[in-house]
Design a binder for these strands. Sequence first.
DNA 1: TATGAATGAGCCTTCATTCAT
DNA 2: GATGAATGAAGGCTCATTCAT
Lengths: 217, 217, 217, 217
Amino acid sequence: MGSEVSTGAGRKARGREDRRQAILDGAFAVFARQGYAQTCVQEVAREAGVAKPTVYNHLADKESLYREAVEAAADRVGARCLAVVDALREVAADTDPEEGLRTVGRELLRICHDEEARAVQRLAGAEAARFPGLEASARERTALRIRSALADRLARLALAGRLRPCEPEPAAEHFLALLTGPLEYRPDADPDALAEAAVDVFLRAYGPGAGPRPGLG
Amino acid sequence: MGSEVSTGAGRKARGREDRRQAILDGAFAVFARQGYAQTCVQEVAREAGVAKPTVYNHLADKESLYREAVEAAADRVGARCLAVVDALREVAADTDPEEGLRTVGRELLRICHDEEARAVQRLAGAEAARFPGLEASARERTALRIRSALADRLARLALAGRLRPCEPEPAAEHFLALLTGPLEYRPDADPDALAEAAVDVFLRAYGPGAGPRPGLG
Amino acid sequence: MGSEVSTGAGRKARGREDRRQAILDGAFAVFARQGYAQTCVQEVAREAGVAKPTVYNHLADKESLYREAVEAAADRVGARCLAVVDALREVAADTDPEEGLRTVGRELLRICHDEEARAVQRLAGAEAARFPGLEASARERTALRIRSALADRLARLALAGRLRPCEPEPAAEHFLALLTGPLEYRPDADPDALAEAAVDVFLRAYGPGAGPRPGLG
Amino acid sequence: MGSEVSTGAGRKARGREDRRQAILDGAFAVFARQGYAQTCVQEVAREAGVAKPTVYNHLADKESLYREAVEAAADRVGARCLAVVDALREVAADTDPEEGLRTVGRELLRICHDEEARAVQRLAGAEAARFPGLEASARERTALRIRSALADRLARLALAGRLRPCEPEPAAEHFLALLTGPLEYRPDADPDALAEAAVDVFLRAYGPGAGPRPGLG
DNA sequence: TATGAATGAGCCTTCATTCAT
DNA sequence: GATGAATGAAGGCTCATTCAT
């Protein structure tokens, strides 16, 4: 009924859902650039190429605009990360996982580094006072989802004897912490080097050779 | 200096410097509770027990208020962390550092968990758009200071053979990441257990026994 | 006319005129409930069961909507009052008019008391600033019409010697004032009692026995 | 300090209370001219000679502004009417009250006729939907107060034998109704004539000579 | 003709900041 | 130096009204 092919025409989004998406995308862009309070709905409207009341026709108020824009972006970021982690499924049970973990590490770091992911984290945490559940919701959509997926993979690797027996969730947390923690101290470090170091430490601690803790006996 | 005895009178802060401190403390409390935009100078004044123009007599404007309040709090948090890390100086060169690292880990986690530290991190990051340098400045006063101090200690431990030879800064980053990373996934986990697990992994990877990486040959 | 049979279909008003009436009725209901400014055209449309632009298809704008709705309601109220007053025609010339006046009074008070009549008066006066002629127009359709009809009846009664000779219009005004005036002070008084008292006073002053003013000689 | 004599200087109101009064007066003037919805706070501010936020410094919001302005005006109107009615105290017990009642009637009508009184009535009733208690409150301050005072006077006159025995409140209501009722039909009639007619009818019905109702035997 | 969607205009309210005391 | 009061500027939200279907 008009929207099936309409956006293909190169014009503005015409279907109702497209319009809504365009508004949410514009909102996320402006909020990411300026923060919640510095952004006025007028600017969001301009960015989306619509008039101000049109924004209110699709989203109830500025707060909904923010919340929904952030959550949608969190979903996108989470999905990208999941895809990366899922690549570990390809690692054959009889293969050394080192290269696979490095690849995953590198690509996760690249995602963490890009604007969208950082904006999601920033925007979700920045307005914790005004949006009580938002930070948790964004974490759910990103970090927790990633940890679960990674824990699944690590569990399979441990089962296959490519890692030492361990609890998968804490192991996944440690992997991700080793990977992204250093970003806090050196935001501009080379992602490849960071990933390599993280995998090195991770495998020293969680690799298959490790029986009891080395050096304890 | 004037402030050493002034507050002894029992009344409100009377010395100029005390007054300023009271305002900054009030500002931090209100900002932490409500965020920058939701806070009006009136409320800061009320919290500090002064009139609004008095605030302007001490701080140029709302932005200075925020910046200085956050930086002062960051200094306090950083100082508390430094004190904890410095306790590692007491670990004798011929002692197993495990217990010391655990203690440090536990206490750092406790600091990370309290309101002030979290507020500092949140407030510094939240207004990155409005206060370009603030996040870096807060990081400088907290995370980077801690990493440096910790790297110093780890270097001495490695030199004493209690850790394997390694670059101290990345090692410190890994230690701190292993420690605080899991908080992101389980904010209410038991700090002691978290610290124990972090130290366990850290020592498996950085302990003295580790020659080449286990499992590589 | 088109509307005579159209509504028989059981669906919503289909004839153009019926549709218009439905809209005006809905408008009056909503305006009466909320006032002019608090009412948005959207609500009128909902009340009438049509879409917003349909309202604009029948009435030029919100102001016409208001004016026409109020005037139509004023006509209805006026007609009801007229019917009541006209019942006085039945009072035979050689009968004591007291009972007839009481009945008229009672029924007029009942009309004054119901929602529609009060809403008409309120809505017409409320927006005097925005609708200059509306208050007068409503008065014309209600109070003045009633007064005229009543004056006619009183004139006939005076001619028949059932009232003292007097000017009919002021007499009618006094009758109506005695009747409805007390409502201002006791909106919830018993209409029957009010009517009885009003007729009693009216007949003391306008009854046939009254030659010159009693007590003046 | 400063407001005791300040307004005498011819400058704008300087004391806090004066300022508030000026704002309420300006508000009443503008609301009376344009109605609630057509009036924006900006205009009230301009009328009062202050800036918009100053209005908000004294009155919480537009609704308070309206309510308080209307109630203050109602008090003024009520007080003026009371003064008129109280003049009846001067009527000696052994004097015919006709002239006194006429004077009271004339002056009450004049008050009813002036802008302020009409505006009070209009504004109080117009926004009944938005200000539930306002109409009653204004009535309390005007009509009911007047009725009470008048009933007191009529009771004394009846006691002195200058009126027939009667219940004072209904008598007062009838007097006021006879007086102001005709305004509804002839808003521009001569107040003196209206008053004379009202008193004439009133005394025919409530005068001392009236034993049983004339014409009943 | 009836409707879903879009828009231009306007208004209440808040707040950082500055005088005058 | 500290305060009460005043203000300029700005932004969220609503709504009457009009296209396009």
